[in-house]
């Protein structure tokens, strides 16, 4: 204690100097407009650097939350698996002993590459023919559709995004009205459902589901909601603007949907 006091006493002029300089700085910044502007500018640059560093750190802190979201998704999917359900069909003397025969396989995949944003978007996933990924299989994630496999290699596959002008997806409403979903190449958040018969009642905000008719996606997957209805004069059909429930451009993970009945169903459509 005595030492500290002695330091203060011996360097009295220094501490007076520092104290008065701080007071002067305060006065300069508060009562001189030029210096105040410079100080504010300097402060904003410094704090901007600090904030960007903080954002980087926060990006890592967010990982915990992201993990939690994925874990919940896995838990939800696990609860949908047949072995976690109690099959009541055997109880009611039925012949549907194959009612839970596996139809769709879901293969987790990461999106490893994507085309620059343009009217015909494609992306590349890190699953290929080795995992029996074949052209024509769908890719989706937990909040919506991503695309359709177009070409495969051993380890990778190219996917035509649903934001591709040649993509056609069979989609419909809860009331069984259905049409074709396509993208006009303009707004990556909206797609158009065409060829819906115009006697089908449609309200804004209705959910649009996959129909499963083209054996690409399972039936009843949510695609988005109806935003706008447009009657096509003379054609007897409606065009719906569909607001997508996911953002295919920013998706990082997905599931390849492998329809095990595809060949069988496809053979029925052959002439």
């Amino acid at each position: 204690m005595e030492r500290i006091l002695r330091i203060f006493f011996n360097n009295g002029s220094f501490f007076t100097f520092v104290g008065l300089q701080l007071l002067c700085l305060y006065l300069i910044i508060n009562y001189n407009s030029n210096q105040a502007a410079i100080a504010a500018e300097t402060w904003s640059i410094r704090s901007g650097k600090f904030k960007s560093a903080l954002t980087t750190v926060n990006g890592y802190l967010d990982l915990r939350e992201q993990n939690e979201i994925h874990r919940r998704e896995i838990a939800r999917l696990r609860s949908l698996l047949p072995e976690s359900g109690y099959n009541i069909t055997t109880e009611i003397d039925s012949i549907q002993d194959d009612s839970l025969l596996q139809r769709f396989n879901f293969l987790t995949t990461r999106i490893v590459n994507r085309s620059p944003y343009n009217p015909n978007n494609t992306l590349v996933i890190d699953r290929g023919a080795r995992f029996s990924v074949q052209p024509g299989q769908g890719v989706m994630n937990e909040s919506g559709l991503i695309g359709i496999v177009d070409r495969t290699t051993d380890r990778h596959a190219r996917v035509l995004s649903i934001l591709h002008q040649s993509t056609r997806i069979s989609a419909g409403l809860a009331n069984r009205g259905y049409g074709t979903l396509r993208w006009n190449g303009l707004d990556p958040r909206r797609m158009t459902l065409i060829d819906l018969p115009d006697y089908v009642p449609v309200a804004e905000g209705d959910t649009v589901y996959t129909t499963g008719f083209s054996n690409i996606f399972p039936t009843g997957q949510v695609i988005g909601t109806v935003e706008k209805t447009e009657r096509q004069p003379g054609a007897g059909s409606l065009n719906l603007t569909v607001l997508l429930s996911n953002d295919p451009l920013r998706a990082t993970h997905g599931y390849v949907v492998q329809d095990l009945f595809k060949e069988e169903l496809g053979s029925l459509n052959e002439n």
């Binding site: 002029s13 220094f14 100097f17 008065l20 002067c24 305060y26 006065l27 300069i28 508060n30």
Partner: peptide
């Protein structure tokens, strides 16, 4: 009307 500027310089000289 430059509150603080001369004071800062004078303090510096005093030190």
């Amino acid at each position: 009307e430059t509150l603080g500027v001369h004071a800062a310089a004078a303090t510096f000289v005093g030190y």
